[in-house]
């Protein structure tokens, strides 16, 4: 104990100094200058914000962004839940095999995966061909350059971010608790909804919020798999800069997106019950 308390406070500060300086110079300052730009370009004032809120385009883009975020989150949950459950249930070797597939997909180049979907989903692509050969459809489905393409491509990317925390959460559940519930006469359905699901809630919640937040900021996948009418906020920002040379407007919409993201991130942190930095073993 003596040793611990003798550690001086400034010690921590010196350890933290490099990273704080780094992030201050290369992360906070650039963001601050972006914020400044939204207020000063072309002239000083709030006109960029006023203009943003006045245009229906921006509202539509905002709506698209949230729509895609919500759909991607829901679908990744629907895919991620049974998968995590199965991994927890399966004999260890198989579970590990599934996890390595997830990790492989997660660590495969984002561009490579998106490109692959682009070719897979096209109307003359292998998925359409197979479905037509089996006779399920006779006209190719339109699955790319529209909302469907974006949702498929992005859910694919997000599934690992649901499975990893959720599976960790599930494997921490004591099977005896569920056993106890069923011994006490609860039906399988009751055990699932009243005991199992509530126990998974922290994992589900943090995974879902994380996915939602990340979806809001995705650029590459919607740009490649989406159509024009599904433009999302990041693409809107890029368009403002590249096509309209309007840095002021782009900065203003960026500030909006940051604010939304920060609020959600704050919620995410509120859901995490234990402090992320406190030592598990205690001092």
């Amino acid at each position: 104990m003596l040793i611990i308390s003798s550690r001086k406070k400034w010690n921590n500060i010196t350890l933290l100094f490099p990273i704080i300086l780094f992030l201050f110079l290369f992360f906070l300052m650039p963001l601050a200058s972006l914020l400044l730009r939204s207020l000063t370009e072309p002239t000083f004032g709030l006109q960029n914000y006023a203009q943003l809120l006045a245009t229906s385009t921006y509202m539509q883009v905002l709506f698209n962004t949230f729509l895609v975020g919500t759909l991607v989150t829901v679908i990744s949950l629907l895919i991620g839940f049974p998968l995590s459950w199965c991994i927890t249930l399966m004999p260890k070797g198989w579970g590990r095999f599934l996890i390595s597939i997830i990790l492989l997909s997660m660590w495969t180049s984002l561009l490579a995966r998106t490109y692959s979907w682009l070719v897979l989903l096209q109307s003359s692509g292998i998925i359409n061909k197979t479905l037509m050969a089996i006779g399920i459809i006779d006209q190719p489905l339109e699955m790319v350059h529209n909302l469907t393409g974006v949702i498929i491509g992005m859910s694919y990317i997000m599934v690992p971010f649901i499975v990893l925390p959720l599976q960790a959460c599930m494997s921490a559940i004591d099977p005896m608790v569920l056993q106890a519930a069923s011994i006490c006469g609860a039906s399988a359905r009751t055990v699932f909804f009243r005991v199992f699901l509530p126990l998974c809630k922290p994992g589900l919640f943090s995974g879902a919020l994380m996915v939602f937040v990340m979806s809001l900021g995705y650029y590459v996948t919607p740009a490649l798999l989406g159509g024009v009418s599904d433009m999302m906020l990041p693409e809107f920002i890029v368009q403002q800069i590249q096509n309209f040379l309007n840095w002021g407007m782009a900065s203003a919409s960026a500030v909006f997106l940051i604010l939304i993201t920060l609020v959600l991130f704050y919620l995410y942190l509120k859901v995490q019950t234990d402090s992320p930095v406190s030592s598990n073993t205690g001092a």
């Binding site: 245009t55 229906s56 385009t57 539509q60 883009v61 024009v228 096509n243």
Partner: peptide, 14 residues
């Protein structure tokens, strides 16, 4: 161009 573009975007997103 800039005015047309605004109109264009509106139309596309409708």
């Amino acid at each position: 161009g800039p005015q047309i573009a605004q109109r264009w975007n509106n139309w596309l997103l409708q």
